[in-house]
Amino acid sequence: MSGLFEFLISDLLTVSFAVAVIGAATPLLLAATGELIVERSGVLNLGVEGMMLAGALAGFAASQELSYAVGIPAAALAGALLALIFAFFSQTLLTNQVATGLALTIFGIGITKLIGEPYTGTPLEPMAPLFSESLQQIPVIGPIVFGHDPFVYLSIVGILGTWYFLFRTRAGLILRAVGEDHSSAHALGCHVVRIRYAAILAGGAFAGLGGAYMSMVKTPQWNEGMTAGSGWIALALIVFATWRPMRLWLGAYLFGALLVLQLRIQGTGVSVGVTYFLTMVPYLATIVVLVIMSWDKVALRRHAPASIGKIFKPAS
């Protein structure tokens, strides 16, 4: 027991732990931010994983062929392109959103594997941190505040911007109104379908960036299916956060911490048999938090967009 305590003090309260958590959480945060916008507009897009892979491949390919400066927007664009398929089916053709989202994920996995074949096994120069060496060397603050790549700052700007957009702008208010009750919003003259198209595309762009973080920064390589289920975790994070941006930010870092923690506990030497259960921890924890967050039915209803996943067809 004292060993565990010692481990917690000496290992977790460290700068390197914080940095590792940020690294693990950033792709999840980016993808979840996008999906938050989508769900706030009353749409459920389960294609996050597929869109992340599209972003990962496009970001990697564009960075390798051209430059990082092209890679980042290319990733966002690729994610949005896949999202456009979803938007067309779910909004214009009024298809079931769960089925369409799943189809998009499978499509994304398959198509990136086909197109990405020539890029596998080729390395990419890692991306340099954004700030100068001298800033990074400031104790504690340096590595935590200045030590990151552009994606980390992008993810923070993204979630803060999303909060500001949703709760401090008129456009955000309209988006939420559409998500709450599309019929009323429509009656008030909102272009429900158009707004949802925009939200879905924005969601795709964020998911693309999340995927690109993996292929451009975390492990600068392209490999089929490399997002390995992150898209689904991003989806869980949103319920976990009860559709609130600040909680989402916290939730993403919490999940990242759990992921890093289970690996670090292993590093202190545990029996092999225990490791399977340690690997389960982040998923079980997600369920537990999901339960706690959902418990208060009234609160959940208050925050969950009421018309999520429902098909909107203007009665013209």
Binding site: L235, V239, Y283, T286, L290, V291, S294, W295, K297
Partner: peptide
């Protein structure tokens, strides 16, 4: 019992 989304819990499981 707790109103937790079966879509996500079943997936996590």
């Amino acid at each position: 019992a707790f109103n937790a989304s079966e879509l996500l819990t079943s997936l996590m499981l």
